Amino acid sequence: MKGSTAAVIGVGATAAVVVAALVQTAGDDPVAGAALSMAVPAEYRTLIEKAGNTCPEVSPNLLAALLMQESGFNPNAKSRAGAQGIAQFMPSTWESHGIDGNGDGIRDVWDPEDAIPSSAKYLCTIADDVKGVPGNKQNNMLAAYNAGSGAVREYGGVPPYKETQNYVRSITALANQNPGGGKVADTGQAATAISAAKGMIGTPYSWGGGNASGPSTGICCSPGGQNGNTVTGFDCSGLTLYAYAKAGITLPRTAAAQYAASEPVQPGNVRPGDLVFYGTSATSIHHVGIYVGGGWMIDAPRPGKPVRYSPLDTMRDLFAVGRPASNTNKEI
C-alpha cells in the first residue's frame, strides 16, 4: 500500500486552524538488505535506503517509519521537550551519537544527511545494548529508542508505558505494511461506514469495547479507572473498526494503529468517511472519529458519553486525517 500513513496537518498547526480548513473545504525480526517500499519524500529516499542497511536489526522501511513517526520527515521539527530535527534527537543524545554522515566536517542535527545515518547508527547501538532481552528484537530496539535501554532491560521487553507501547505498535505497523496491499475506501464504502456509525448513535461507551460484529463488553481499565467489563458498547477505535467492517475494510484495533494504516489526506481533499485523529504526536494518538462533513464527526467520545455527533474541535489536539485502508498484515 503506497503512502501508508496519515499525514500530519502542518507542523505546529492548531486544532482551530485544522478545523477551519476542513469546514471550509468540506512482527517478525527485520531482514538485512531489505528494500524500501514505504512512500517517502524523494529527497530522502537514497539516504534512507543506504542508512537502513547499517545493521541486520534495521531495515529501510523501519527507518522510514521511525522518521515519519518522529517528525513527519520535517528536518526543522522541534518538540516541546527539545528534541531536534528529522530524527528528533535530544541534544545530549546527539552529542554522543551524532555522526558526520555527509563528510563535510560538521555534525549537524538539522541536516538530514547527518541525522538520518545517525538515527540508523543509534538504532544499531541500541539493538546491541538490548540484544540479551527476551522477546522480539525489533520491538525491544524501538522501545529502547523511545524509553531508554534501561527501561527495556528492567521490564524484560517493551515497558508498560502507554506512549512507548503505541510507539512500537505504530512504527511496526508502518514498517510492515504490505506493498500493493489494502485498498483505500471509495466513496461508496465511506457512505456505508457512516451509515453504520449513525446506526450506533446512543450506544454506550465501553473502554476496549466493540469489534467487527458490533458492540461488545470492554476491558479494564481506562486512564480514569472506568471498567469496560461492565458495559456493552464501543470505544473510539472499536466504533471505527465496526463501521468500516460493514464497508468491507478491516482496520487494526487501536486508534494509533488505525492512524498508521491510513492513507494521508490533506485539508483540501478531506471527504466524509475519512478518519480524524487526535493527539500531540504520531506516538500519542488517543482518539479517532469518522468525519461526516461540515466540521462534524461521529465518535465514541469517552466513558459516560455515548456514540454521538461531535464537532471536530471537541478536543484541542486534532492531529491528522487519514483515509481508511484494509489492514493486510497480521495484528500487531
Rank of each mutant, 00 (worst) to 15 (best):
I201L: 06
Y244I: 02
Q226A: 09
R253F: 02
M315I: 09
S195D: 06
R323F: 01
W110T: 09
A245E: 03
P159L: 08
V58K: 02
N329M: 15
T250K: 14
P204H: 15
G52N: 07
T46F: 00
T14F: 14
T203P: 07
A32N: 05
T283L: 12
L36N: 03
R107I: 06
G293F: 01
G10Y: 03
K162W: 12
E263S: 04
L174Q: 02
G33P: 04
H287K: 11
G295Y: 07
V17A: 15
I332P: 11
L62N: 00
S262V: 04
K50G: 12
T254A: 14
E331P: 08
Q69R: 07
G135I: 08
G135Q: 03
Y161I: 14
V18C: 10
K50S: 14
K78L: 15
Q88F: 01
D29W: 10
R308V: 04
V58A: 10
P112C: 13
G202V: 08
N178R: 13
P41W: 00
G208I: 04
E163S: 05
V270H: 06
I290Q: 00
A320C: 03
P60I: 02
A77N: 11
T14G: 15
A173K: 01
P215I: 08
S119T: 04
G293Y: 01
G150F: 12
